[in-house]
Design a protein around this nucleic acid. Sequence first.
DNA 1: TATTTCATTGAAAATAAATTCAACAAAAGT
DNA 2: ACTTTTGTTGAATTTATTTTCAATGAAATA
Lengths: 187, 187
Amino acid sequence: MTRKEQKEERKKAILMTALTLFVERGYYDTKITDIAAAVPMSTGLLFHYFESKEELLLELVKMGAAGTKMASQETEYPPEIFLTGFLRQLFSYAKEQPWVFNMFVLMGQVRRAGMPEDARNLALSVDAVDMTAKLIEKGQKAGVFHEGDAGLMARCFWASVQGIMEEMAMDKSMEAPKPEWIIAMLK
Amino acid sequence: MTRKEQKEERKKAILMTALTLFVERGYYDTKITDIAAAVPMSTGLLFHYFESKEELLLELVKMGAAGTKMASQETEYPPEIFLTGFLRQLFSYAKEQPWVFNMFVLMGQVRRAGMPEDARNLALSVDAVDMTAKLIEKGQKAGVFHEGDAGLMARCFWASVQGIMEEMAMDKSMEAPKPEWIIAMLK
DNA sequence: TATTTCATTGAAAATAAATTCAACAAAAGT
DNA sequence: ACTTTTGTTGAATTTATTTTCAATGAAATA
């Protein structure tokens, strides 16, 4: 393994550790020393890989943004099927791919006030509301979703999902809800 | 007005200012100096009224806890009617009584990891999940709500509401959803 | 093997935020 | 009017946390 690869591995390890801690304890309550200790490495070395705590967060949000874009692609599936499947997969990640799950939760948290601006703006720029609104309109035309401002419905839909994901992040033993419960909000 | 009353007024002013800022910018991003400047008063004086930033938060959460208990009383109303009415009122507060609205949002935020322990524990001790679970069971027996673990349903219900309330707190111009959309999660 | 480059440490410096405090002002009580 | 208590300020101090850095060890290259 070349040194460059090694360095990439190490960076990834730091990012994953930080991601877990940020989601478990929150950004501000996670100290740089905590991250370093958990990797583990010295605090000094961490700054060899990342310029600052903010940059570390930004890097994570960049990854999350890439993932969000992927997931926001257009789809041919009927709206209800697509959204149900999406949720089913998302919830299953909680146990099977905590990494993806944590990333989703982090993206939502960073979108809120009180987070470093760079990261926040990036997170805000990639949310899936627009894409979902279109999907909802399609569903409304097909008569499977109820009437109403599709943009508002999409926003509430994702806000709900975010709320539930954070609840699950807080209590790992919590079961996931049935995707249908949440889809029912739209029907 | 006696001095004691005056002092109480001042305390209340500080609390309300802090509440607004905590919800608008988040606890950690709200500096003691920001609160003092917004009241307005000197930073030194603020410590004449509250021992620390944490105590200030705790005081707010105590108020919120009292309110939550009140709102968690048993009810004779049919479950669906009660919950719909509750949500309608809650959402209407966003414009009409920002104070109550902010308090609700803060309570939810404080319940999460990464908040000072005292406040967090208090907030966790008063949530409305149990009461709602009972209500949901009642609704299930009456056949108006779908089957499923009532505790989990209640948790998801409140998590969704919290998510939506935070979205509304972030963008004051956002419209409130129809309570029925959220109740549909249970039907 | 010698030399250069990169990885690593932990303690010191810098920064940021909370908290204290000495001094003064205003109000209340005598 | 005078004395005491309470309110007020803002700069100085303390505390918490991030960030730098000089020194050392390990790996790559010649």
